[in-house]
């Protein structure tokens, strides 16, 4: 009952704000643009998802920031939390209701953007639109979005100031995304790991590096999209897709798709659990 109250109130409050319109419009706009642009080079609509996935990995978490960083910190700073927790709502129901509400909005944005991509695929591409591949993409992206939303909401739960929440969420984005994947050649996780290993006088095996690389929800997301390209990898039709997903030699545990999904799930669950453990005894005065 109380979870439903918190969820319903937050969902209504959020969906009536311009933030939601912004998130859905921005995401749908970019995904449509990418899908439209890729049509010039490929005849299968699902090939656009390869480029869209990098947009989801790199930009969508930033679009999630305004949707999530004030989830709890905003309520604490404005004092609105006194309305909700002055009623018989437990702190667990409060955090969970807020999280599910924001995730529902984010998933709605994902769904809208994928539907837009399908429609553009039907109109612009020569080949057929494989709805199963799009649905698979939407499901895996949904898991990624739920995981990142959990991490950002957890960050918001740990602080009572909007400025701290903002810096925390953006910092987590850079840590788990560009830094982890190594977008910047020097400032990257691999550079740090190599330096630490050198200082310790040891070297890391490729397997260990593989586990470290795919331990982030963002990298796990990209790796976990492999089923979207089932039957395409190694066929020679799409070399860039093959280059990203083909595995030479025996498959390690971290290269299993379920491992990637477990990684995303674990990040979301642990982030929420850890933040709740602190919020449960937090001073709300």
């Amino acid at each position: 009952m109380s979870f439903a109250t918190v969820f319903r109130d937050d969902f209504k409050n959020t969906r009536r704000s311009y933030v939601v319109l912004g998130v859905i419009a921005t995401l749908t706009g970019f995904v449509s643009l990418i899908t439209y642009s890729v049509a010039e080079f490929h005849h299968d609509a699902f090939r656009a998802l390869f480029d869209v996935s990098f947009f989801f990995f790199l930009v969508f978490p930033l679009i999630l920031v305004p949707l999530t960083y004030l989830t709890v910190a905003g309520d604490r700073e404005r004092g609105s939390i006194k309305h909700t927790l002055g009623l018989p709502n437990s702190r667990a129901e409060y955090v969970l209701g807020k999280y599910v509400s924001r995730t529902a909005v984010a998933l709605g944005a994902v769904l809208a953007s994928v539907l837009a991509a399908i429609l553009i695929g039907l109109g612009m591409y020569d080949g057929s639109v494989d709805v199963v591949r799009f649905a698979t993409f939407a499901a895996i992206t949904g898991l990624f979005v739920a995981s990142m939303t959990a991490i950002f909401v957890a960050c918001s739960t740990l602080t009572s100031r909007r400025s701290r929440a903002m810096f925390g969420v953006i910092g987590l984005y850079f840590l788990l995304g560009p830094f982890w994947l190594g977008f910047l050649p020097v400032v990257s996780l691999q550079s740090v790991v190599t330096t630490v290993a050198d200082l310790l006088g040891t070297t890391l095996s490729d397997t260990t590096r593989g586990y470290i690389t795919l331990a982030s929800p963002t990298t796990a997301y990209l790796s976990g999209l492999e089923p979207v390209y089932d039957g395409v990898i190694g066929s020679g039709d799409y070399p860039r897709v093959t280059a990203n997903y083909a595995i030479e030699g025996s498959r390690e545990l971290y290269q299993e798709n379920w491992f990637n999904y477990a990684t995303m799930t674990a990040w979301g669950v642990l982030a929420l659990a850890a933040s709740y453990a602190k919020f449960r005894v937090a001073e709300l005065g």
Partner: peptide
């Protein structure tokens, strides 16, 4: 409660 802002869109 004193000095709190209600949920703005409710």
């Amino acid at each position: 409660p004193e000095g709190y802002e209600p949920y703005e869109n409710l």
